[in-house]
Structure formats: C-alpha cells, structure tokens
C-alpha cells in the first residue's frame, strides 16, 4: 500500500478545545496532517473542518474511525479526488518595481487572481483555486522574488447533492 494524500471533511461541534482534541489524536496515533482548515458550516454551533492527511488507505480509514469516536465530532467523510470540489486561498507578497509591476499584473489577471495591496516595492496577490492553480501562479511569481506566502490549506465539499 502506498502513501497518498486523502481529504477528510468533518462536521464538528463548535466548542472550546475541539481543535486541540483533533490535533492531539493525529499526533498520538502518528498520523500525518498536510493541512487543516476550519470555519463555519451551514448549522449554527457546528464547524466544518477539512483535513488533508497522508497515508495508505488503511491508515486513512483508521484516522476516519478514530475521529468519529471523538464526542464532539459529528460526522467524518473521506472524499476521493474525483468526487469533490476543493479550493484554497493564498496571499502572496511579491517584490515589484516600476518595471516589473505591469508584468506581474498580467500574470495575475491570467490566473483570475487579484492584487489586494500595492506598496512601492511590492504587491500582494490574492489567489483562489485548487492547489495546482495556486502552485502554478506561485511558480511564475517566484521569478520576481516572493517575500511572503500565506496559504489556507484545502477546503472541500462533495460534488452534487450528496452530503
């Protein structure tokens, strides 16, 4: 069995310490988290958490079942690549001079990204998309000199009307 990336989406109660319980579980059972994003859900008092974990399929099934055992975790789905819509948001601060600024703006526009801050020697780019898109833009901007990057990690929902 080979290690691959797996996406787990969890509906959790919005209570103090829930993130700590989940992080503690991953650490204790030696599961690897690549990214973890958490925010509100459609139900008041509940959050939705997207976790990208690395492991073989048996490990991921074990992670899912261990997460389900946490009292504050209502439901966990392991979603396969084809069945989900995923997005990530990144903020990228790029070095910019009078001569490079317009070239950066062109690249940003090709990626349907936005410039959200302009300073004399830099611009900050906001990009939304799947990880590949964010990685491609980041790759192109590296030529100009990337000063800082902040990425949210993946958030995901299943496609279609399934929940």
């Amino acid at each position: 069995m080979t290690d691959t990336r797996h996406t787990l989406v969890a509906l959790v109660e919005d209570k103090p310490g829930v993130l700590n319980r989940i992080a503690s579980l991953f650490r204790r059972r030696s599961f690897n988290i690549e990214s973890l994003a958490v925010g509100g859900s459609e139900r008041p008092g509940f959050s939705r958490m997207t976790i990208v974990a690395i492991g073989d399929s048996a490990q991921v099934e074990q992670i899912r079942k261990q997460l389900e055992k946490l009292i504050n975790v209502v439901k966990v789905s392991a979603i396969t690549e084809g069945d989900m819509v995923t997005r990530e948001l990144a903020l990228i601060k790029v070095k910019a001079t009078a001569s490079t600024r317009s070239e950066i703006m062109q690249i940003v526009s090709i990626f349907r990204a936005n410039i959200v801050d302009v300073a004399p020697s830099s611009v900050t780019v906001e990009v939304t998309g799947d990880e590949d898109k964010v990685n491609s833009l980041l790759g192109l901007l590296r030529d100009f000199g990337v000063k800082e990057v902040s990425r949210t990690g993946r958030i995901a929902l299943t496609r279609g009307s399934n929940s």
């Binding site: 310490g17 700590n20 503690s24 204790r28 009292i71």
Partner: peptide
C-alpha cells in the same frame, strides 16, 4: 488537566 487527559479519556470537560 483537561489538556493533559485528552489522550487518556473517552471525553473530558472543564
């Protein structure tokens, strides 16, 4: 103590 006992309790409360 709630932080300490997360991995060794079924659940805990403060």
């Amino acid at each position: 103590i709630t932080g300490i006992t997360i991995p060794i309790t079924k659940h805990n409360y403060l």
